[in-house]
Computed example of a mutant assay.
Amino acid sequence: MTPDPGGVAPFYREVLGWEIPAEGHSMPNGSEYREIRRGSGGYAGGVLSLTSTMSDSGMQPHWVPYFHTQDVDAAVAKTQELGGQVHMPATTMEGVGRMAMVTDAQGASFYLMDPVPPPGDPNAQSDAFDAQKPGHCRWNELNTTDAGAASEFYPALLGWTLGMAMPMGPLGDYQFVEVDGVAIGAINPDLGGERPHWLPIFGVKEVEAAKAAVEATGGRVTQDLQEIPGGEFAFTATDPSGAALGLVGPKGA
């Protein structure tokens, strides 16, 4: 979500090889939606333009993940039962699927979605997330005020399981979450002074080149390169509109 899709397009092109079109689809609230196309083919996600009304209500530039559920309406009811809130009720978009925007009990926002496969390909699967490939979302990190509550909320809502945990001293544990045995992200008890939010971490071919591209296209590095388990390196940044994201990949030779 950003007030200026055109203003962030060069950033995502240079950093991740994505293309954001100059024009989008008109939305009922006056906003526009643009699909993000990967240079290697397929779609990485979307850009929703923030209108002045949305900004005046307190909505700021940020990334919002979509999590799959087979029954959006039941998941919305379960969200409320678990202490979360509904920001956009369950809605069906023709050719897209049924979705709702909600928050967990601590206020981190995300979408619940049951997508519709494209015509002629009923078994199609989204590849926006891939734990290994550059240009895809490789990790989803929940930064929260109550990691213990989140570790109960998401398994109860979406059937996720808890994987390994990395101790972080007095803060608690960095708790991995898994779907069908694949680690898709983690629950992080360190907010760093921010409000609860999901942080997407995208794969890049070469992390130092990505860092240079961030700084050359109006972004800002907020946490410098850190080595992660497995030998790759990651850093966090904001795009030119202020939306936070992470980037991960190998160092160059």
Rank of each mutant, 00 (worst) to 15 (best):
R37E: 00
C137P: 06
Q125F: 04
S55L: 03
M113L: 11
V102M: 15
D71M: 08
L157T: 14
C137A: 10
P21C: 11
F67M: 02
R34M: 07
T144W: 06
G159C: 02
K78I: 13
M93D: 15
R37A: 06
Q125N: 00
Q80W: 01
H68Q: 12
S109M: 14
V116M: 05
V47G: 08
N143S: 12
S57Y: 02
F67G: 03
A22N: 10
D114A: 09
G46V: 03
R37I: 03
L112T: 05
D146H: 12
A90Y: 03
T103E: 13
M101E: 15
D146Y: 10
Q70M: 11
P134Q: 05
S49R: 15
A74P: 13
V72R: 00
T145C: 10
M113V: 12
S109W: 05
T92Y: 13
V86K: 08
G107K: 07
F153P: 04
A22C: 04
R34G: 05
N123A: 12
P155A: 12
A149T: 08
P119Y: 02
M93F: 14
A90S: 14
H68I: 13
V96F: 11
V76G: 08
D56Y: 07
S49V: 04
F153N: 02
A74H: 15
A75Q: 14
P119R: 00
F129G: 07
Q85Y: 09
S49T: 11
H87M: 05
A128P: 11
S109V: 09
I36G: 09
A100H: 04
S109H: 06
N29M: 15
M101K: 15
W63G: 02
D104V: 06
D127P: 02
A77H: 10
P65S: 06
P61V: 13
M113P: 02
T69I: 09
V76Q: 11
R37Y: 07
F153Q: 01
K133P: 12
G45M: 04
M54C: 06
S151F: 00
E141G: 12
T69H: 05
D114K: 14
